[in-house]
Simulated scan of single mutants.
Amino acid sequence: MPTETIPDFEFAAGQTVDELTVAYETYGEFTGENAVLVCHALTGSQHVADSPDGTAGQGHGWWRDVVGPGKAIDTTEYFVVCANVPGSCYGTDGPPAEGPDGERWGTEFPPVTVGDWTRSQRRLLDELGVGRLHAVVGGSVGGMNALDWAHRYPDDVRRVAAVATAARLDAQCLGMNAVARRAIRGDPNWNGGDYYGGEHPTRGLALARQLGHLMYLSKDSMADKFGRRTAGREAGGDAFPTDPAGAFFPYRDVESYLDYQADKFVERFDANSYLYLVRAMDDYDLAAGYDSDADALAAFPGEALALSFTGDWHFTVEQSEALADALRDGAADVAHHVVESDHGHDAFLVEPESVGPPLADFLADGVDGRSVTDTRDDARDDYAPVHNSLFSG
Rank of each mutant, 00 (worst) to 15 (best):
D126V: 10
R123V: 05
M176V: 13
L133F: 01
R158G: 03
V163D: 05
A183I: 02
C173Q: 14
L169G: 07
W149K: 15
I184C: 00
L124P: 02
M176Q: 09
G139I: 10
Q172P: 00
G131D: 13
P154Y: 04
V163L: 15
M176S: 06
L128V: 03
V130Y: 14
D126H: 11
V137I: 08
H151I: 05
A178D: 15
R159W: 00
R158H: 06
G138S: 10
G131A: 05
A180N: 14
G129N: 08
A171P: 03
L125N: 08
R152S: 13
G138V: 00
E127P: 00
G142T: 04
G129Y: 13
R152L: 02
H151S: 15
V137M: 07
E127G: 05
V136I: 07
R132I: 02
A150N: 12
A166P: 01
G142W: 09
I184V: 11
D148A: 11
R152E: 14
S140I: 03
A146Q: 13
N145Y: 06
D170Y: 11
G131P: 02
R159C: 07
V141W: 02
V157N: 09
A150D: 05
Q172K: 11
L124S: 08
E127C: 08
G129E: 03
R181I: 09
L133P: 02
G143C: 12
M144E: 00
V130C: 06
R123D: 07
W149M: 14
L147C: 09
D126Y: 01
G139M: 01
V160E: 00
A150Q: 11
C173H: 14
V157F: 04
R168T: 00
A180V: 01
L128T: 03
H151A: 05
A162Y: 04
A178G: 09
Q172R: 12
H151K: 15
R182T: 01
R152K: 10
R159D: 13
A171N: 11
L128C: 08
R159H: 12
G138L: 04
R158N: 14
V137R: 11
M144Y: 01
L147P: 03
L169M: 15
Q172A: 12
N177T: 07
V157M: 14
Q121H: 08
L174Y: 01
A162H: 00
A146K: 12
W149G: 08
V160W: 00
V130G: 12
A180E: 14
R168P: 07
Q172E: 14
A180Y: 06
A183S: 09
D156A: 05
G139L: 04
V179H: 13
V157Y: 11
A164Q: 04
G139E: 03
G143A: 12
G143K: 14
A161M: 10
A161R: 06
V179F: 11
V136G: 04
I184A: 02
D148V: 05
G142C: 01
L133A: 08
L133E: 10
C173R: 15
A162K: 10
V163M: 07
L125Y: 03
G131M: 04
A178H: 12
S140T: 06
L174A: 02
V141M: 11
G129D: 07
M176E: 13
N177L: 07
A166M: 13
A180R: 15
H151W: 03
A161N: 04
M144R: 09
A146L: 09
V136N: 05
A183D: 12
Q121D: 13
G142V: 01
A171I: 14
A166T: 04
R132P: 01
D156G: 08
A183C: 10
R122S: 06
R152V: 03
R181C: 05
